[in-house]
């Protein structure tokens, strides 16, 4: 399990391609958050529609939670 001293970046699988992602920082308590999910979502704009992952068929959203305060956050994977 990752702790506060866990490495700053990790490799994640995205459409079969490995990419480095940085830790998301909690906006409530400034701690590193834990990425616990990737969710395929529909694009919400024409700009996102142009960035649909051709392998997965959608946009990948990362979902993170803060081990300190429980706050949740999300962002697009790329």
């Amino acid at each position: 399990m990752p702790g506060k001293k866990s490495q700053k970046s990790r490799a994640s699988k995205d459409g079969g391609r490995s990419q480095k992602t940085s830790k998301m920082i909690c906006t409530e308590c400034n701690q590193e958050m834990n990425q616990h999910a990737e969710k395929l979502v529909d694009p919400t704009s024409s700009e996102e529609a142009a960035r649909i992952d051709p392998v997965l068929g959608g946009i990948v959203a990362e979902v993170h939670a803060c081990p300190e305060c429980g706050h949740s956050g999300s962002r697009r994977a790329s």
């Binding site: 994640s12 834990n34 990425q35 616990h36 999910a37 081990p67």
Partner: peptide, 10 residues
Amino acid sequence: LRHGRENIAL
């Protein structure tokens, strides 16, 4: 699930 969200990385 709270434990998992906060402590278990994908």
